[in-house]
Simulated scan of single mutants.
Amino acid sequence: MPLITTPAGIAVYYQTDGSPDGKPLVLLHGGGAQLIGWDDRFCALLVDAGFFVIRTDNRDVGLSQATGGPDDYEATYDLADMADDVVAVLDDLGVESAMVTGMSMGGYIAQLLALRHPSRVSALGLMSTSLTSAPEFLVGEHSGEPVAFVPPVLDRDAYIAMFIGGQRNYQSPGFPFDEAASAELGGRYFDRAYTPTGLVRQWNALLRGPLERREEMATVTVPTVVIHGRGDQSLHWSAALETARVMPQAELHLYEEMGHDIPVELWPEFVLALARTAGRADA
Rank of each mutant, 00 (worst) to 15 (best):
L211P: 05
D232T: 07
L199G: 01
M1K: 10
R156D: 02
V246Q: 01
Y13G: 12
L154F: 00
G231R: 09
H253Q: 06
M258C: 05
V87S: 11
A240C: 12
I54L: 03
A283R: 15
D78Y: 01
P70M: 07
R201S: 10
L45D: 13
P210M: 07
A193E: 04
M258P: 05
S97N: 14
V246Y: 01
S143G: 14
R214W: 02
H142M: 13
D92Y: 11
D84M: 06
T56W: 08
A273I: 01
R213D: 05
A205S: 06
T56A: 05
P146N: 09
G259Y: 15
M82G: 14
A239G: 05
D85Y: 15
S182K: 15
L274S: 01
E242I: 06
S143N: 14
V271Y: 02
E215Y: 02
V47C: 11
D85W: 14
A83H: 00
H29G: 08
L46T: 06
Q249R: 10
E269P: 00
E141Q: 07
H260S: 08
E215S: 04
V150S: 09
G144L: 08
R59K: 10
L3M: 08
T197F: 13
N169W: 08
D72H: 15
T195P: 03
S182C: 15
M247R: 04
L211I: 04
E179K: 07
T277Y: 00
Y159M: 05
A98L: 00
A278F: 00
H236V: 00
L235T: 12
I109W: 13
R188A: 14
G18M: 02
Y77Q: 08
D191P: 06
G144N: 06
A66Y: 12
A8D: 12
V220G: 04
Y77S: 06
R55I: 00
M247A: 03
G174L: 02
Q233M: 10
Y14H: 10
Y73Q: 04
V222E: 04
Q171M: 11
I36R: 08
